[in-house]
Design a protein around this nucleic acid. Structure first.
Lengths: 195, 195
DNA sequence: ACCTGAACACCGTTCAAGT
DNA sequence: ACCTGAACACCGTTCAAGT
């Protein structure tokens, strides 16, 4: 489908894609029911560009690499990252990603029921991290406002924040993302599902 | 500020809020620089409506209760849940929430540096869960498409999905959210930050 | 039968003009 | 000095009319 060509668009909207295709926006509704469905289709297409990660290293390392690649792809398509949280793809590439994650957790000896719920959690976290940084120019201002507020806090009213301000703000993106993924995996490994 | 009145709006947009205030949309730019800043302000206001959670139970139980209350509040304001991921508030109520979470993790003996990075992870997860369900009517269709795709998968190409289809789809919202929070806490407890 | 032009109902943001 | 009407540049979606 022509959805392929949407990858190149800076912002994937009905009207821009239609223009790219030299037609009116109404024409797209023949192939797709609404914008959410369009985004899901483009997303699945992009998932196909990731490719398999190298098989070296432990299952944990490979799991982290897959999730990093997924997050990195979304980083490069900020306008899609935001909708990825709500517009779930159900195409072949998304299914392959789920299968890969389940296989790696199985290799690590994670009980199947926990792995099933864990995949959700891992993908949600990766998607949310990409979406957070998709806030274009304004998110920098928000960040500045928040760091300022954290540093100005009184240690009488907010003792923990005052003590930990540096820790709250420390760490490069990659280091934090890596830590998050490892914490998630450990939690998934050790938390039984109800019943 | 008049931002208070925005809570009642079904969708918080510049134009709707301006109409509510009997003026033109341009007037709001005196108080706020853009929509992200507006949403952050409304969000902080809403955070004030949560109120303190009962002090009974273990620190883990209380932590879960705080995060559930936060998620529940966002559930009731779907249009804000989506922007909550990118529009970070930096108001007093948000700072109180962070302080509360840090104090509970400290009570649980979680090393401070891990607690600091953990708060981020906990809030991100709660926000993302609320945002996921803010996809109005269309998310139901996405869900149907995904469940269909998962059940139709071949056990030759996707053995893990085929074996776990039921687990992938099982569980009520509350049970899954509760499991996620517990998994997160366990992961945060046990994962050291670099250096 | 299939496609789409044109219209409708929304948005955010800016800026010149008003008080 | 402070506020805002009106305009600009976008959106998604529908539906009647065209081929």
């Amino acid at each position: 489908m022509a959805v392929l060509r949407a990858d190149g668009l800076r912002k994937v909207t009905m009207r821009r894609l239609a223009q790219e295709l030299d037609t009116g926006p109404a024409s797209l509704y023949v192939y797709v029911r609404n914008t959410a469905e369009l985004h899901a289709a483009v997303l699945d297409e992009l998932l196909g560009t990731i490719g398999p990660v190298p098989a070296e290293g432990s299952w944990r390392e490979r799991l982290e690499r897959v999730l990093m690649a997924y997050t990195g792809m979304l980083f490069e398509h900020p306008s899609l990252a935001r909708s990825a949280l709500t517009a779930w793809p159900s195409g072949p590439h998304y299914l392959n990603l789920i299968e890969t994650l389940l296989a790696l957790l199985d290799e690590g000896g994670v009980p199947p029921a926990q792995a099933a719920w864990g995949v959700d959690l891992l993908l949600q976290q990766a998607t949310a991290t990409a979406a957070e940084h998709a806030g274009e120019d304004t998110s920098q201002d928000d960040w500045d406002a928040l760091t300022g507020a954290l540093r100005r806090v009184s240690d009488r009213t907010h003792p923990r924040i005052a003590a930990l301000a540096d820790d709250l703000l420390s760490g490069a993106h990659e280091a934090r993302l890596s830590w998050r993924i490892q914490a998630l995996i450990t939690g998934i490994e050790r938390t039984a599902v109800p019943q």
